[in-house]
């Protein structure tokens, strides 16, 4: 059901500026170098702290170069800061040996990507991700680690399984992503699509409540821009009208998972006699 009286073939254009892809070669080189450095690190070929600091300095230099190449606007600067923090946290997550340090790197990466989500005006998801990951997960992780871990480093934290295969797989995947993203003319211009094809809700007056306005074909571009999703209330309205069944199913899955976690974490009866 399409409640909107707009012809889907005649939608207003939102973003039509052309895009030139020029990042591909540099990006592929950076990804390849990062993979080689990770392998060298895992095989113990980078031993001295001097080389690690040199790598960190190289990373900082690349970050500085990235800063100079982006347009000097505040939001791009903040976005770049969050992105660099996220990548640095992820690198710390896979390179450190101590599980607590790895957990801190994970928290850095997730919190920074939450900052990026905030800047994409996904406020609810950013807050929920912060609560779920950085709050609950990290705290439970540290709790589990406290009772599970001995004081010294465990041997299974030091010896990894198949770093070569993992690096090859992940690097080829990331290079494919980078190549396809940096391809020019690959990201098409976008039209404002306000159709709701799966909606069960009918817009219109309802007894006892005032329904929010819906976009119409006769509106100007400025009036249509008011419907661009930038509010959490709009997300809530979309959740509980267009995707009501899916949201209810998600709540059911959460309930089942809670029950399963309670059953699994119970202490088994040791003495039956």
């Amino acid at each position: 059901m399409n409640p909107l009286p707009i012809d889907p073939k005649n939608l207003p254009l939102v973003n039509g500026d052309p895009f030139q892809g020029n990042l591909a070669q540099i990006l592929l080189m950076v990804i390849l170098l990062g993979a080689v450095a990770y392998l060298l690190l895992q095989h113990g070929l980078i031993k001295s702290k001097m080389m690690a600091w040199a790598g960190a300095g190289l990373f900082a230099f690349a970050a500085l170069m990235a800063f100079t190449s982006i347009p000097m606007q505040l939001d791009s600067l903040v976005r770049m800061c969050f992105s660099i923090l996220a990548v640095a946290g992820g690198i710390a997550f896979i390179t450190t040996r101590e599980p607590v340090h790895a957990a801190l790197g994970f928290a850095t990466a997730v919190l920074s990507s939450c900052g990026v989500m905030f800047m994409q005006s996904a406020y609810f998801i950013a807050a929920a991700t912060m609560i779920v990951y950085a709050g609950a997960t990290i705290i439970i992780f540290l709790f589990v680690l406290m009772f599970a871990q001995k004081a010294q480093l465990q041997w299974y934290d030091v010896q990894l399984t198949n770093p070569v295969i993992a690096t090859v797989v992940a690097t080829s995947l990331l290079m494919a992503i980078a190549w396809s993203v940096s391809e020019s003319e690959e990201i098409l211009p976008v039209k404002l699509d306000l159709t709701r094809p799966y909606s069960l809700a009918e817009p219109g007056p309802s007894p006892g409540m005032v329904m929010p306005p819906v976009p119409e074909a006769s509106m100007t571009q400025d009036q249509l821009n008011a419907f661009v999703p930038a509010k959490t209330s709009g997300l809530g309205r979309s959740m509980f009208t267009d995707y009501l069944l899916a949201i209810e199913l998600a709540g059911t899955v959460l309930l089942v998972a809670t029950l399963g976690a309670i059953v699994l974490a119970q202490k088994p009866e040791r003495d039956l006699s």
Partner: peptide, 27 residues
């Protein structure tokens, strides 16, 4: 869009490497 898609891809690749190499269950 390009930068953020790349950031998502990098996070995914880091997680993939971590999942394939780490041996601790929690990590």
């Amino acid at each position: 869009v390009q930068n953020l898609l790349l950031l998502g891809g990098i996070l995914f690749a880091i997680g993939l490497i971590g999942f394939l190499t780490r041996r601790s269950l929690i990590l």
